[in-house]
């Protein structure tokens, strides 16, 4: 991974890195990905991907909303709280 690629990924991740950080991260990620490449040795043709522990059966339930005791307290924790809303900078001109 070169510095330009690192910069592209950082932008996707909403992270702003200094030039020095980008250079360091590019080197480190290259080393880590190189180590991860050993996974290619494992034959996986036709193996279904396991995005969660394979024996977990989804415990389905009725989709019923349950009340939260203090919704206002959740909003109050935000530094942009305004009444029951989160205030953010303008996103459309």
């Amino acid at each position: 991974m070169d510095v330009r690629e690192a910069e592209r990924i950082a932008r996707l991740a909403r992270l702003k890195l200094s030039d020095a950080e980008l250079a360091r991260v590019a080197t480190q990620l290259t080393a880590i990905l190189g180590y991860f490449d050993q996974l290619r040795e494992v034959p996986t043709d036709g193996v279904p991907p396991a995005s969660h522990p394979p024996d977990l059966r989804g415990p389905l339930r009725a989709d019923v909303a349950a009340p939260f005791a203090e919704p206002a307290a959740l909003v109050r924790e935000s530094q942009g709280a305004e009444a029951e809303f989160f205030r953010v900078p303008r996103i459309l001109e």
Partner: peptide
């Protein structure tokens, strides 16, 4: 991202605030 919890480091626009 500073919107719902924790400190918010406000900047000119939303993307800059996130970063």
């Amino acid at each position: 991202d500073g919107v719902r919890y924790g400190p918010r480091d406000a900047a000119l626009d939303l993307a800059a605030t996130y970063a």
